[in-house]
């Protein structure tokens, strides 16, 4: 009798634990959309999304977030260009080429990279990457390029870990079959194993994009944060996340609503990216 009660009781406890995450995601959805949509309606979605001027304190104010949307896209794209080749090659090396001793050393380092707080990455970029970029390209050193390099480094652990798992998950007989047909180790890995792990690698890239687009504190320090459409990669840029964090502390009334609406747009982007991720995963 007692054990049955305990079993039921624990079942409820487990069920509640499982629902907490679902409930919080639903609450986040509700609040972000409930907070943002009234403003979008009032100010006009088109004016908001395609507006090029962000001047919340002018009279009359203008809230155009196109510069920030483009900023997020540019910076994320730059991070992918820098991070994906390094990440995928590292993953291939870890899974297929490196010996056990090096692996034991590399793997924990990469895991450690994932655990470093983003503000520390930001500070590292501020004192190391910014001066280097400033010396080579001139200007302030706070630019799309700097932010891209930083984010490229930050998304490495995500890409490496998931790609490595995907490469390891490729059935051994693919590789062995290729070797049996006379291909070298390198040929087998590059032309047989990697293509077979394609969808896993693609999902690692998508998750990397998600991480890059959502990164905030590190990017604020090195991106310059100018709210205008940049015309070259050595110019500063403001991302959607930066826009919210920078101005939230002082924003009131309509300005605040505009920032929540910015979060709504960002959230929509993240939903789209995760949708893509699920799609790629299902095809596997």
């Amino acid at each position: 009798m007692k054990s049955k009660f305990l079993e039921n009781f624990m079942r409820i406890i487990f069920f509640i634990s499982a629902t907490v995450s679902i409930i919080s995601i639903i609450l986040i959805c509700v609040f972000i959309f409930a907070g943002g949509i009234p403003f979008l309606k009032e100010y006009g979605f088109k004016n908001f999304f395609f507006g090029v001027d962000w001047k919340p304190n002018d009279i009359p104010p203008s809230y155009g977030i196109l510069p920030m949307i483009l900023g997020s896209i540019y910076v994320t794209f730059g991070a992918i260009i820098i991070g994906v080749p390094i990440g995928v090659l590292t993953a291939t090396y870890l899974a297929k080429f490196c010996n056990k001793k090096i692996y034991k050393f590399l793997k924990p380092s990469i895991n450690l990279m994932a655990g470093i707080p983003s503000i520390i990455y930001g500070f590292f970029a501020l004192v190391v990457i910014v001066p280097i970029v400033r010396n080579i390209f001139g200007g302030t050193g706070m630019s799309i390029l700097t932010a891209s390099i930083l984010l490229g480094i930050m998304i490495l652990p995500t890409i490496i870990n998931i790609s490595e798992a995907a490469i390891r998950a490729v059935p051994k007989n693919y590789y062995e079959g290729s070797i049996a047909l006379g291909a070298s180790h390198e040929q087998s890995v590059v032309s047989v194993v990697l293509p077979a792990a394609k969808s896993g690698i693609l999902s690692s890239i998508i998750l990397g994009i998600g991480r890059a687009i959502g990164e905030t504190m590190a990017v604020i320090l090195v991106a310059g944060n100018q709210a205008r459409i940049p015309s070259s990669i050595t110019e500063g840029v403001r991302t959607l996340t930066a826009n919210i964090v920078i101005e939230m502390a002082y924003a009131a009334d309509e300005h605040r609503q505009a920032l929540i609406a910015t979060a709504t747009i960002l959230f929509a982007f993240i939903l789209i990216i995760n949708g893509l991720f699920l799609l790629v995963k299902r095809r596997r």
């Binding site: 706070m142 310059g224 944060n225 100018q226 709210a227 110019e235 500063g236 920078i246």
Partner: peptide
């Protein structure tokens, strides 16, 4: 100036 760096 729109090129001014913004710090918070």
């Amino acid at each position: 100036y729109t090129e001014a760096i913004v710090q918070n």
